[in-house]
Write a protein that binds this DNA or RNA. Structure first.
Lengths: 246, 246
DNA sequence: ATTACCAAAAATATCGATAATTTTGTAAAC
DNA sequence: GTTTACAAAATTATCGATATTTTTGGTAAT
């Protein structure tokens, strides 16, 4: 009796620990069908597997992702609000289109929001925030941007740490609403980056830029940090814009 | 032939004008069951009919709004992204809770975003923008804030024109993403205003404040306009915060 | 009294079928 | 050759039923 209980509790503990360390897709897989469909669709749209403008037929998705219509439709509804999917009443869903103009807007809005959030974070951040900034910057610096080899295959670990670094910088701004907006914009930007499909990357030293932003933030120099951050985003943006049009 | 074409264009123009002036509920009511359920649920949450934290049982809603489970669930999914509804996997939906802390965040985030958007709008706005600002300010000034009588019953016409005025001010900022964020925050704020259920309103002259903001914007004085706008929001916010806590 | 357990009830999530709508393809009319 | 009309096919939106999960309430053990 006791042994049985202990076994169950142990299994439950394992499950929860896995949930904490496992990546989003896996966690979602254990949850509802809707979460599963949402995570997979989102990932496939961000990575470009589902191309912009593509019709998302319910029946087709039902078969690919092996779930019923309800979870698919609910997941698509959620993705609509994330701006990854467009819905037209009575005419179904399609993958959100991309455009050079929208990318412009995305870039400029990101700069507006992140500049403000960073300035506030620098004012309000405590020593714990400082430590998290240092740590996330260090962790980012420890992995290469691309997978070993001559191709420019994105390193998933880098992607994750890069997002974590930028999130940490602004995490002390004092508004979770602001952080949610920035998160949305970040993911939208990742999608554009994936879709630009650039093989040749500019030769500038992204690592050094991250280091400089980190230093300015720790030195509590809001003006400098904001300037460096905006320049960082703008440069990458300009480059992607070029890839997108050319 | 030519006359036919003109008639069609004219009808299309009428239709679009109706869409602009008609309220959301009516427009949505003509669409799908999902849109209908979405609009009605949204309205009932914003107005406070569905109180914060309340469990949203599918079967119950199905009967109240007279639609099937799918449209209800889809509408709730959409409202989740609007932050009007909270979802817990396998445990259904509930009306988003409110808190004094969240209201603080809402207020400060609104100020950050609208200040930036207004400054950009003042820089980029053309003469058409100026005219729209003048017009929306005038229209707002022509209706009383409360229904005639001694109670403080909100005037729906005022609500609509007030939102239109504030939207117009920032409409030339150059980012529809930014405008979408501000719209979301505005509606969240309206919900808090409704829920505070204040009967006594402060005696300050809101009309004069709107006039001053309008003048500063037209004079292209970004610093002054931003200062007035933030003060305008902060004062109303402080007051509501007091109502909410006391 | 408090906790642990289990069965009944309630509620959620999901599915498969049907109704309503849009799209497509074809043939007749101009 | 283009447009119009209309039926067939495809697709979306919606419903009602079922499977799964959580909650509830009562009972026994500590």
């Amino acid at each position: 009796m006791e042994e049985e209980k202990t076994k169950i509790e142990s299994a439950e503990r394992d499950r929860q620990e896995n949930a904490l360390t496992g990546n989003d897709e896996e966690v979602a897989g254990q949850g509802s069908m809707t979460s599963k469909a949402y995570a997979r669709l989102r990932s496939d749209i961000m990575s470009g597997v589902l191309t912009p403008g593509r019709k998302l037929k319910i029946e087709e998705l039902r078969q690919i992702y092996d779930v019923g219509t309800s979870p698919i439709r609910e997941a698509l509804s959620l993705l609509t609000s994330d701006h990854f999917v467009e819905r037209i009443d009575q005419r179904g869903f399609r993958v959100a289109k991309i455009s050079s103009q929208e990318f412009d807007e995305l870039l400029v809005t990101r700069c507006w929001l992140e500049e403000r959030a960073l300035r506030e974070s620098i004012i309000k951040g405590d020593s714990s925030w400082e430590e998290q900034v240092v740590l996330s910057a260090y962790r980012l610096s420890r992995v290469p941007r691309f997978e070993p080899g001559d191709g420019f295959i994105a390193n998933p670990e880098w992607e994750q740490r890069h997002k974590h670094f930028h999130t940490t910088l602004i995490s002390a701004c004092g508004s979770s609403i602001m952080l949610k907006f920035c998160d949305q914009l970040y993911d939208q930007n990742v999608r554009y980056r994936q879709l630009s499909g650039s093989k040749a990357y500019p030769t500038r030293d992204i690592s050094a830029e991250h280091g400089a932003i980190c230093d300015a933030a720790l030195a509590r120099d809001g003006d400098l940090a904001a300037e460096l951050l905006v320049a960082h985003y703008s440069m990458t943006g300009k480059f992607l814009q070029y890839q997108l049009q050319g």
